[in-house]
Design a protein around this nucleic acid. Sequence first.
DNA 1: CGATTTTGACCCGCGC
DNA 2: GCGCGGGTCAAAATCG
Length: 475
Amino acid sequence: MAEGRFSIGKELINGNPILNCGEDEHLYPAGSSIDGNPMVKEMDFFAADNNSSKEKVCAGDGVVHDLELNTRLNLSTNTSGAKSNVDDHHHERGTISYNINGNKRKVNELIHVQAELKQMHVENKRLRDMLNQMNNNYNGLKMHLVTLMQIRNAKTEKDHEMINAAVEKNHAVGDIFSSKEIIQMGLDKSDVAIGDISATTGRERSPDHQAIVQGRVANKVPKFGTSGDLDQHSETVSSLIRKARVSVRARSDAYMISDGCHWRKYGQKMAKGSPFPRAYYRCTMGSSCPVRKQVQRCAEDRSILITTYEGRHNHPLPPAAEPMVSTTSAAASMLLSGPMPSADHLLMNSSNNILPRNNALNFATLSTSAPFPTITLDLTQSHNSSDHQFQRETRGQIITFPQVFGQSLHNQYSNYLGLHGSQGMVAPNRMQNADAVSSATAAITANPNFTAALAAAIASIIDNTITRNSSDNNA
DNA sequence: CGATTTTGACCCGCGC
DNA sequence: GCGCGGGTCAAAATCG
């Protein structure tokens, strides 16, 4: 409950017209916040509302006092009226009569105002619940918006040229990957369900292909060369991929980002290299929901809150949770869909910035640092920054990743989610997972751009790796 | 009184 | 084998 109220930081609040009301000085008088927590302000919205109401309807501690004040005013009016009557008629008897009438009115008004107060408390509570709900929705929607804006910004002419050039290069490189395999990879990688930040793989493919896919889940995955091992392969890879993580960085003074789910804290540790503790939460919306998240404040910038999600929800999600879940799902799909060379391969070709920095997709960072691959959505930076790239980090190395791939897949996924309907793909926003998987698979594989983007990504990696190796050897 | 948080203990994998 | 760090467990404390 408190989680929902303390969940959104200033950045998120500032963009919300509803929450902007909370920034209103009238509603938030000086000193209304606690420790600068904007969500405390949110709570103070109601506190302040109560205060303003107090002035108007005499709520809270001021009820009796203000009520008495109003009643006295009325009484004095009545009394003055009575006095004039009394002067005309029976002075003493009239005074007693009007005092009784005045007391009756006083009691009646008291009852009336108390009833109104009760009604307003109910209304206040209802509004508070509504605001919490809207906060949750807003939080998730903003994440969607930022994601989509980043992707659209990245759709430059340069990218298209890069795709075309890379596709041609791919033909020149030869049959490292047949088009069939590439499409098959798309099929495999698309096997991601809504509300699920994991995916499954395990179809038969060439050894090179296996190396790439296995590399996605770090270099610990045993390699399976025969079809007889496929089931085991699938299970192993799947279980590891299930550990894929989506990390969200957002500026917030709150102790946790609200995502619409219900979490229970089960541990807290001091992480190495950070003065701030790391809190561990598990989802309590399902009886045995395996989804966990870690919340930690950034050591370098304490205003940044890092939330890392892991696992899949095994229960229906509330509407408030869907934006966040679908965003993390899309991010995870990007992570799990990348044509990732194996960690060994990357280490063998140890080099930084294999690929040229040429894109503005600046919010996502991929990390295959052991033990589990992680994608980080950075919502703390401005949209027009072009300094940051879609990167893949290995142990001690940062290798720029061909953004076009993740972009393409994410677009596909967004299309499927109905978030990006301008490209002619229509899909329901809410579907059951089974249908979601099949529909996403169909949507992804049906679009030739996906294949082209994938080919471009693979070709880029191969081409740049080869180029880098030769330059390293020459050096 | 049930739900949640706190916190020390424990387990496990990894590197030396 | 040992120490370290990340992650989890579970009893006690706290909250609503």
